[in-house]
Design a binder for these strands. Structure first.
Lengths: 147, 147
DNA sequence: CAAGATTGATGGTTCAATCTTG
DNA sequence: CAAGATTGAACCATCAATCTTG
């Protein structure tokens, strides 16, 4: 089996570490301000973008790389808090449409007030615009053709 | 509050996505081969490097960015499988020393036979040596001065 | 049968409280 | 009291089985 170069191994270690630093900073900031986890923000953002038509659950799976049962249970909790509603899909009796509520839109905006500054602190303050663009470009290579 | 630039936001999105692609590929490969999760490898590697002296639990916390109770419970499970042993610390009655066993060393090597090729596939095949070095350098900027 | 979604059971993670020793 | 570590309870994630409709 082909083993990784030292460079590749080091890059992976640093990628994991950088992700860890960022995600724990963000989750901690959200939690400290009595907000739900970041995944709730991601879901609300997708639904916000989808507008009145909403999204099917499997579309959320694809967009956020989640499992079917994960979406099912996350969405159940978010709905219970009133930030989205699940309505029967007219064109496909098996499906539900997920639609963000007014409260959901408000929550998303309020979470951004905490989430945004964390990104600023973790990225804008540590990389120049050029460095950030370059990293973005390189990360794109890891993502595209991921299959 | 200072909000992030579009570039920073995009870089963070891609970092999270690239991490997600890599970690799920690795965990899936390990699981498919009946191996435990990646964190077991990380722990065994730290203990392997520490040699006969072993490590204190709080040293593992620092090295792997884990919580005290996480280490406590992970180590309990790994010990139960016989891959490490916990011995009382002679110099500090509060502490335990964690020492890898022969079986633990073997497991770590066998996991690397699956883990290594995944890193190769996910990094070596998608980035040139120069690109990987450059990404590593930029990621270093995100990690250093994380506090 | 396949696709979309849900659920019971299980196992792991997390919080807060606790225990023990320095 | 602080540091190292553990634990009960609650919460969340995961697997496999299931249900419903195309």
């Amino acid at each position: 089996m082909p083993m990784p170069s030292d460079t590749a191994a080091e890059t992976w270690i640093r990628l994991a570490r950088a992700y860890g630093v960022a995600i724990s900073g963000i989750e901690q900031a959200l939690s400290k301000n009595d907000f739900p986890p970041l995944i709730w923000y991601d879901i609300l953002l997708e639904l916000d973008r989808a507008g009145e038509a909403g999204l099917r659950q499997y579309e959320l799976e694809d967009a956020l790389l989640l499992k079917q049962y994960s979406v099912s249970r996350l969405v159940e909790r978010i709905e219970k808090k009133g930030y989205l509603k699940r309505v029967a899909c007219t064109s496909d009796g098996r499906g539900k449409r997920l639609i963000i509520t007014k409260d959901g839109e408000t929550l998303r905006r309020r979470m951004w007030q905490v989430y945004g500054p964390e990104i600023h602190r973790l990225f804008d303050q540590k990389l120049t615009r050029e460095q950030s663009d370059e990293m973005s470009r390189l990360l794109g290579r890891l993502i595209d053709g991921a299959e």
